[in-house]
Design a binder for these strands. Sequence first.
DNA 1: GACACGTGGCT
DNA 2: TAGCCAAGTGT
Length: 371
Amino acid sequence: MTLDVPALDAGRLAAIRAPLLAWYDRQKRDLPWRRTKEPYAIWLSEVMLQQTQVSTVIPYWERFLARFPSVQALAAAPLEDVLAAWKGLGYYSRARNLHRAAQEVTAQFGGRFPSTAKALLTLPGFGRYTAGAVASIAFGEEAPLVDGNVARVLSRLFVVEGLPGDRAREARLWALAGALVKGERPGDFNQALMEHGATVCRPERPLCLLCPVREACLAYQTGRTAELPPAKVRATPKLLTLALAVWPHGDTLLFARRAEKGLFGGLWELPAVEVAPGAPEAEAATRLSEALEVPLTAQGVLGTVKRQLTHRALTLHLLRVTGPQRPSRAAAFHELRWCTPAQASELGMSTAMQRALDAALAKGVLPDVAR
DNA sequence: GACACGTGGCT
DNA sequence: TAGCCAAGTGT
């Protein structure tokens, strides 16, 4: 594998750096995290933006900062509250790692962020990208970063072949990014590269006529912008079928908190067990009874909610149940709690589970006064 | 290296 | 519409 960068002589470097930075200064979007130099706020934006679109992140970022205004405030908060603030944003391990990293920064670094990519990389949730982003944007280190945007831009500028995930391709992209970021304003340059990928050098129908580095782009010169980079090969989603217990009592329903790892880790749910796709109601009731460690009676299926995740096709069967003993704890769940809908709305819950809960409530499982 | 991990927007 | 995609990380 070659790590040198033969296509990047000094002249080529200058022909990309300067126009891209100048373009960024003219055309950058006014995003809220571009108005702060606070490392904590920049870190938060970078984590929220992982695999998530800018327009989705903005309101979350603002609410989260209002609720947890400093790394110390975040470190001191219960994980449950952090997950509640993350509710609906997806990839919840990001919130768990964010919380852990805040505690490590507070405990090991006296509340001050490490300022180099190398040191940041030791914190939970900091991979190569996020370490480079925070180091360059918040601390001005000449640290490279490669995200999906940068990979696309550099693939086209330098005609980097290979599929996403290919080791030689990744090494080449990081080497190019590392050579390009050397110089003035590394944070702005990295953002320029990403901004360019997001708005001009788009995946489909890139706006080459508006491109500030068109003359330096090998893909443009050879008519290959449409075929670079090749699309990711995605596995077909696996089926996951869950039976959910809808157990009314007074104006409450039973809720459970999931184990901290895996799908929807640490989030609240209607108590759920996995069942075979075509499993009969009686089997689902038996599984739920075992998980909740109490006898229970099935009172019919209230409905089914389907959700498509990236790697999962989720089917949620809502099973109305009741029983003589109301459980308050069970080994299969972190915690059990009886909540009104109003209380449940404050819990950290996945969007998938929220849809299921809404469907159950729409069936009138609780008295009107509780809704 | 492959896979798990969410969600909403866009075409 | 169904599929693709987005400022990735952890195991």
